[in-house]
Design a protein around this nucleic acid. Sequence first.
DNA 1: TTGTACGCGTTATCAC
DNA 2: GTGATAACGCGTACAA
Lengths: 345, 345
Amino acid sequence: MSLLKRATISDVAKLAGVSMTTVSRVLNKNYPVKEATRIKVEKAIGELEFKPNLLARGLIHNKTQTIGILTPSIENLFFSEVVKGIDSVMKERGYTTFLCNTEGDPKQEQRMIDNLKDRSVDGIITINPRTKNIKSGYYQTLSKQIPVIIINGYNRGIQCNYVLNDGEVGTLEALKYLYELGHREIAFLRGQFSYSYDVKESMYKQFCKDNHLEFEEENIIVVEDGNGPQTVEQSKALVEKILRENKRFTCLFACNDWMAVGALNAAKSLNISVPDEFSIIGFDNTIISQITEPRLTTVDQNMTGLGQISGKRICELIEDKSSGNKKIVIETKLVKRESVAKACR
Amino acid sequence: MSLLKRATISDVAKLAGVSMTTVSRVLNKNYPVKEATRIKVEKAIGELEFKPNLLARGLIHNKTQTIGILTPSIENLFFSEVVKGIDSVMKERGYTTFLCNTEGDPKQEQRMIDNLKDRSVDGIITINPRTKNIKSGYYQTLSKQIPVIIINGYNRGIQCNYVLNDGEVGTLEALKYLYELGHREIAFLRGQFSYSYDVKESMYKQFCKDNHLEFEEENIIVVEDGNGPQTVEQSKALVEKILRENKRFTCLFACNDWMAVGALNAAKSLNISVPDEFSIIGFDNTIISQITEPRLTTVDQNMTGLGQISGKRICELIEDKSSGNKKIVIETKLVKRESVAKACR
DNA sequence: TTGTACGCGTTATCAC
DNA sequence: GTGATAACGCGTACAA
């Protein structure tokens, strides 16, 4: 493989019979250049297929037109849609993105951020970062060195730029919908450790209280892990047990779509018809919710929008570093499909 | 926001009372340095929290320890698993990756590659590139300038480095499995334009011939689009039609898991039990196949492995540019779950 | 074992 | 309008 060297600005200058400075001016259009010389230079650029080396540019400006995105998992539909949203904005504005998979490990998260800093990225967007790194003040310190956006992670008192979903309102809307359809016995399915589950659970309890629904601890079903297909299996097992042992529930609220699918499979294996005999509502509106039978009623988190807003916000921060910290909250939207119906008893 | 400047090698040199060269030697361990000075330097490095600027390094070596990955879609489970495989290998070897979403547009594909070249990436991996760009010789030319791996795209006569799945053998194995279970009337469900569908269809026809199964054109069901949730809806509609109009089929081979899910939903809506009355086999072994009820029997493409092998191969090419072109074919594996059973008639 | 000086490719500064 | 030169931060011949 013979890799022929790329032409440099000096090659162009020689061929066009001008100085490097002039070539640079033609490229950047930042200083006046005589029409005739401009044409000469452009011709030389074309002939040599010259394209400026972005590394060298970055070295001077200390600005690379790149950002880093951190995600705990690339194969999770939630995250990949957010990434897509970010990417669409950044691409449009001439940025290229490093995508880093932290595998949900706080240490790796920090290592990858170090790497991104070494590569002089202009900003960092971190999706669902480990709470540990937020609480410890790591991100607060980082934010003083480089523009940072935290997606779906929030901590009072920690001053950073946040973009997040309104999980409380989304949960409330879903519960209200069930209530209006006559459901009074609502099971609640969640994962173990995550701020977002806690938010939803406290909303659920509040809702029960406000509407004089009797709340019992057994209403809360906790599945071990929150993401990925194993969640489906685990949820299915737990929900099967509940459905067999306790006939009073007429519906179930699941904290994400994977769990909702597990619940759906549980009902199916017990020959309980959804939604005629049992209603199920999910959360996230991932692609999954469109391909089940019946299709899932769920709460749309507007993941692409979340990404887009984060992209725009990081650009603001890059352009105006003095811009203060903000917390942007995105509204959710209930998507009604077929997995919820009127309560049958 | 006060962005304090990073320390440079010269800051370290001053603080340690040595020359920049010595600092560089301590960093790279490529020349002997007296123990005492090394300790002095390391102390200074620690104090200043010095970390070398990778941009400057890249400028010298013309090597950046970065690669670019192109994918037609980031929210497709197939692609994201491949990316994960690549990433795991590259991370381990100290590379960072630019991820670019081409949206399946040939023009964008070329533009993003230009961008990556401008950023001096060491290599490029392109997943399911547009056939147009392969056939036109674009990738062959590109391969002479920079190491390139093409995943799941192949063209005889076009000399490039390929890594791909053995779709033929995978299809054969699936069909054999159905045959051995007594199935003689096998429907075939595919998408429109893709080399991989063509390969599978011709294998299917060959199989019918070899086993004296009567082949009729109506056996082949063609769904418009091949990826994403809309495929599920479309497949469902088509398969419902077939199941109603033509009772002879005892099973169905789907070219990917989305289509298989569509078929599953069709059977469900007609109250046809899978696998007791009708068997369905998918292709890809995406996460989807694990969360349906019943879970899908499917052909594993070993997507993560595909990515890992591509990662290793690109490293080889980067290290030894003279290394010739290779075509690496990955074996598939039949994953038996619950959607296939003995033929019932 | 250590230091000096130059180069990587580009842009900014200053002089003409 | 245009050109020479320093500078970005680092690595490396070459000299000491």
